[in-house]
């Protein structure tokens, strides 16, 4: 089906806050099966891009499609991992319960999660190496463990397209490795994963696709073609200076430049 070619298709998206554009006329196409990083400086609108795509904040203009369908019809196929500090981790609940929340969307109004939902949640926790801590109150988890609980919650959704907002922010090395292998496992299953990422050093190692964003899309494409020194400099306004990145500039010409 031609519609399935792009997991995410954003056309002319503008988001403004008090008439100040945070995202300006963004066009973005993410092919199905891509493992993509969104990078850009602070305030570039990375999280805003995800939230606007998911309809969590209003957009001033533009259109977003998921697998060729509007959000309403694609909701069940989309998983979202918000920033870890977007919720109150002192909430009285357990790791397993948070993961079970990932299944609420499928249940809809009024239906309660049953034994099979519990099993699915446990399996998701196991995938991120947290099965042993299933009954642990979330307030007693470390930051990295909390991040993995959030990932497990998205996994439990069984989505085809995942949005992750800075999953690597302030996590320990164990968690970082766990997340990377999870991302690759998802890619190998043919899922599309879009990750807001901060660390330019690891883009090449972790991701296949990249979008460089600073209010506008500076470049988007495979890491090889788009993640060039020139594009990075344009994205960060040359502020990074001499980046210790071994960049291959020969593919620069192939980059899709907005």
């Amino acid at each position: 089906m031609a519609d399935e070619q792009y997991a995410l298709e954003i056309n002319d998206l503008t988001v403004a806050y008090h008439q100040q554009p945070v995202l300006w006329d963004v066009d973005l196409r993410v092919p199905s099966g891509a493992l993509m990083a969104i990078v850009g400086p602070n305030g570039a609108g990375k999280s805003t891009l995800i939230k606007a795509a998911l309809g969590l904040i209003p957009r001033a203009a533009g259109d977003v499609r998921f697998f060729g369908a509007p959000l309403k019809r694609a909701r069940a196929r989309i998983g979202y991992v918000p920033q870890r500090n977007s919720v109150d981790w002192d909430f009285p609940t357990t790791a397993l319960d948070v993961v079970t929340m990932g299944l609420y969307g499928k249940l809809g109004w009024l239906r309660r999660p049953d034994r099979s939902a519990r099993q699915a949640a446990l399996a998701a926790l196991d995938q991120v190496g947290m099965a042993a801590l299933a009954e642990r109150p979330i307030s007693q988890l470390s930051g990295g463990q909390q991040q993995r609980v959030f990932l497990a919650r998205a996994l439990a959704q069984g989505a085809d397209l995942y949005f992750m907002d800075e999953p690597f922010a302030a996590v320990d090395a164990v968690t970082e490795r766990a997340i990377v292998s999870l991302l690759h496992a998802l890619r190998d299953q043919g899922k599309t994963v879009i990750v807001v990422h901060h660390d330019l050093q690891t883009v090449r190692e972790y991701f296949d696709w990249v979008t460089l964003l600073n209010v506008e899309v500076i470049a988007s494409g495979t890491v090889e073609s788009a993640f060039t020194e020139a594009n990075i400099a344009r994205t960060y306004g040359g502020r990074l200076g001499a980046l210790p990145l071994a960049l291959n500039s020969s593919h620069e010409a192939d980059a899709y430049v907005a």
């Binding site: 609940t93 929340m101 609420y104």
Partner: peptide, 17 residues
């Protein structure tokens, strides 16, 4: 279920409709 999710993570609750 709905109140718990909306209290803990309103964004996800909204994403689920």
């Amino acid at each position: 279920k709905e109140l718990k999710l909306a209290s803990f993570d309103p964004d996800l609750a909204a994403a689920f409709g």
